[in-house]
Amino acid sequence: LQLFIKTLTGKTSTVEMEPSDTIENLKAKIQDKEGIPPDQQRLIFAGKQLEDGRTLSDYNIQKESTLHLVL
């Protein structure tokens, strides 16, 4: 599924993920695209901070969801 990652600067990146992927996997993919180390990334979806060990489906993240990346 395609996700949009929006940064505080207003920049939006697109990443392709599976519902079974963990937040950790997602942060690794963001690191590949943006060069931001996972330990500096905080991802927010629906007002919640996402935890590394959980999966996208745990948070009911659907295709074309927008996640907010806070550093």
Rank of each mutant, 00 (worst) to 15 (best):
L1S: 04
L1I: 14
L1P: 03
L1D: 03
Q2M: 14
Q2L: 15
L3Q: 02
L3V: 09
L3P: 00
F4P: 02
I5R: 00
I5W: 03
I5N: 01
T7N: 09
T7L: 15
T7W: 15
L8R: 12
L8P: 14
L8H: 13
L8E: 13
L8C: 15
T9W: 14
T9H: 14
G10N: 05
G10Y: 04
K11H: 13
K11W: 13
K11L: 10
T12E: 06
T12P: 04
S13G: 05
T14E: 07
T14F: 11
T14Q: 10
V15T: 03
M17A: 13
M17K: 01
M17Q: 03
M17Y: 11
E18K: 14
E18H: 14
P19G: 08
S20E: 11
S20G: 13
S20T: 12
D21R: 03
D21L: 03
T22Q: 03
E24Y: 14
E24A: 15
E24R: 14
N25Q: 15
L26Q: 01
L26W: 00
K27E: 01
K27M: 05
K29S: 05
K29Q: 06
K29F: 06
K29L: 10
I30P: 00
I30A: 01
I30T: 01
I30C: 00
I30M: 04
D32V: 13
D32N: 10
K33R: 11
K33C: 06
E34H: 14
E34I: 15
E34K: 07
G35V: 02
G35Q: 05
P37C: 06
P38Q: 13
P38H: 11
Q41E: 01
Q41I: 13
R42P: 00
R42I: 15
R42A: 07
R42M: 13
L43E: 00
L43K: 01
I44Q: 05
A46L: 12
G47T: 04
Q49N: 10
Q49Y: 13
Q49V: 15
L50Y: 00
L50S: 01
E51I: 08
D52I: 06
D52V: 06
D52C: 05
D52T: 06
R54I: 05
R54M: 12
R54G: 06
R54D: 04
T55M: 11
T55N: 05
T55Y: 06
T55C: 04
L56W: 02
S57W: 08
D58M: 05
Y59R: 00
N60R: 07
N60G: 14
I61C: 01
I61D: 02
Q62G: 13
Q62K: 12
Q62W: 08
K63A: 15
K63G: 14
E64C: 12
E64F: 15
E64K: 11
S65Y: 07
T66P: 02
T66R: 05
L67P: 02
L67V: 13
H68D: 07
H68W: 15
H68K: 07
L69D: 00
V70W: 11
L71Y: 10
L71F: 11
